[in-house]
Structure formats: C-alpha cells, structure tokens
C-alpha cells in the first residue's frame, strides 16, 4: 500500500509504469521548438468539426485512443479514464470521452489537471482498483479565449505578462505492469492565494502554489533540489518561473540550476509572439507526453519532478474582483524503482 509521507506526500509501493503516452497539438505548437516530438500536429484549429469546442472534444477522444493504441492495448483494456479540461462543466473532455464507453472521472484542476489525473490514476492502481488507467488533459486556444477573454477577431494588444493557451491533448496509459519510467510518488498541492488579481499575469498567480508544493515535496521526502535531474513546472511562463525561483530562494532553496517550465519549452517566444509562454491544461500534458517522456525513455533524464500548475479562477470571479488562487501537484517520475523502506 502507498505510504503517506510528511504532510502532503505519498510514496507508492507498486511499480506504476507509464507504458505509453500520446500527444496531439495545433499548428502553432507544431511549429514550435518541440514540433518533431508530437505524435499528431493538426492542420487547423477545428480539425474537421464546426466549432472549437467540438474540435477539442475530438482531439481529446482521438488522442486518448492513440495513447491506448501506442501501448498495444484496446480501449476495453482500460479500466478507468481520468481526464479534464478548461471548458465549462468539463465538456471538452466529457463530450469526447462519451464515445469511448469506459468508466470516467472528470477532473478540474485548471491547467494542473494533467498532474491531478496522473496522481489519482496512480492512486487507483496502487489501491488495487485497477491495473490499467488512462490519464489525460486537453485545452484549445480559441475555445479558452472565447470563454475567458475576448472574441478572437477583436483587435486588442496582449500584455507582455500574458501566456498563450496550448491547443492539444496529452495522454498517458498507467499500468501496474510495465517498464520505466515509473510514478514513484506525489505531493498534492494546497490552494495558495497571494492576492494576484491580474488575469493577464497567470504565471504570477500560480508561482506561489508551485513554490509551495515543490518546497513541501523537498521537506516531506527529506531531499534537496539536486535529487532530481530536472524539476518541471506546468505553465508558469517566463514571469512565473522567475518568481518561483525567487520565492524558493527566500526559503533557502535554489532550484535555478535544474528547473524549467513547459510553457517556456513549448514555444519560441521571439518568433511565435507568445509573450510570457504557453499555458492551458495541454501545455504540461503535451510537453510531458511528447518531450519529457521521450527524454526519460532515452535515459537522458532519470528522475524528474513534474509539477503541472493551475489557476482556479473563472471569468465571473475575476469580474467580481476576487484574487486568483493557484494550485500545483507534484509527480515524481523515475527510471529506477527502489523498494520503500
């Protein structure tokens, strides 16, 4: 059975293997620095559908199916699906997953959803409740802009602190039998709110949650930053990354040497005009599924702390002047598996 460690962490006893991943992205992400790593790069934003929302559901369905296919399984082998997205009532996922006919937990952790999916999927396997689960998360730039910001055709300027929502879906099949990498532990994040109200500076709103959960992970497991080959946050972008480093420095921890953010990796901010970086559920989901999973498989990375980050606000809460609460969940992935003492 899993072991509760410290205040908010879990060490898994079973070998929870990530047996396959799949990533589908939009054209902009395909043109970015990680373009060659993605399984599918869409030709346009609607993917043959007649709305962005329907396109997101289709992307989610197709990509989840692809992850299962890449694992050499059929959808019937999957015992549970854990997935979520940014759209109201989780329709981005649910409408795609309804055709898959598998037991489903719809999750919402804003852009941290992929971390939440991985954590809960792992717990399901560890508990013995399942041997194979499918985890994922999706987002769509156009659908997110429509729900959270302005119509796409409106001629406005985006502030330099703003981030660009990634279009795509990232998915992984977790199994109790399989090869490295393994999910060996997790630290569940608390909701952290330091009073940021600027919805165009999500990196700043989420950085405190990221720093909080990373610090908790170090304390709970009694480790220091160099325990990991790389610490990877979800979608803090350039502004949030700098803030996270500074916040942790104040706590006496220096992660600047082995730390990056998916929102920074996924776009070239100069040529792609993405300002502070990428964001959205798909940002961490596709970057992990395509790029970091590949690096672990090749042995270039052997132990990572993957920390998808989310901002738990809605357009209504922002209009009512509420601050933006952040959340982040940390997942430990390792190529070697050590038995728990």
């Amino acid at each position: 059975m899993a072991k509760h460690i410290g205040k908010q962490s879990v060490k898994f006893e079973s070998k929870i293997s990530v047996i396959s991943t799949a990533s589908t992205v939009g054209t902009k992400e395909g043109e970015g620095p990680l373009g060659q790593y993605f399984d599918v790069v869409l030709k346009d934003a609607v993917d043959g559908e007649d709305s962005w929302e329907k396109a997101e559901s289709k992307i989610a369905k197709d990509n989840l199916s692809l992850a299962v296919k890449k694992a050499g399984l059929t959808m019937d082998d999957i015992e549970y699906i854990f997935s979520g997205d940014l759209l109201n009532q989780g329709t981005g996922s649910a409408y795609g997953i309804r055709d898959l006919k598998r037991p489903f937990f719809g999750l919402y952790g804003a852009c941290s959803t992929f971390g939440e999916s991985m954590c809960l999927g792992s717990v399901m396997i560890e508990s013995g409740g399942a041997s194979k689960v499918l985890v994922g998360a999706s987002s769509h730039f156009c659908a997110a802009e429509k729900q959270f910001r302005f119509p796409l055709g409106l001629g406005t300027q985006r502030p330099l602190t703003s981030t660009w929502t990634v279009t795509g879906d990232g998915a992984a099949v977790l199994s109790k039998d399989g090869n490295a990498p393994f999910i060996t532990g997790m630290t569940t994040g608390k909701i952290v709110d330091f009073g940021v109200t600027d919805a165009n500076n999500m990196g700043a709103a989420m950085a405190t949650a990221a720093a909080d959960v990373i610090l908790a992970n170090f304390k709970d497991f009694g480790i220091s930053p160099d325990y990991y080959d790389l610490i990877i946050t979800g979608d803090l972008g350039y502004v949030g990354k700098d803030l996270t480093i500074d916040l942790l420095k104040k706590e006496g921890v220096d992660i600047s040497k082995n730390y990056t953010d998916c929102g920074i990796e996924i776009y070239d901010r100069e040529s792609q005009d993405t300002h502070s970086g990428g964001s959205g559920c798909a940002c961490s989901a596709v970057t992990f599924s395509a790029y970091f999973f590949d690096k672990m498989k090749k042995g270039e990375l052997n132990r990572i702390l993957f920390v998808p980050t989310g901002a738990l606000m809605s357009s209504t809460s922002v209009q009512q002047g509420e601050s933006i609460p952040g959340i982040a969940h940390a997942v430990i992935l390792e190529n070697s598996f050590e038995e728990v003492i």
Binding site: L160, V239, L243, L247
Partner: peptide, 10 residues
C-alpha cells in the same frame, strides 16, 4: 509578493 510580481513582470 506584489512587489516581487511588479519587478518580475515586463
């Protein structure tokens, strides 16, 4: 933190 954000945000 508001001061830190101000400094970090271009």
């Amino acid at each position: 933190y508001q001061d830190m954000v101000k400094k970090a945000s271009p």
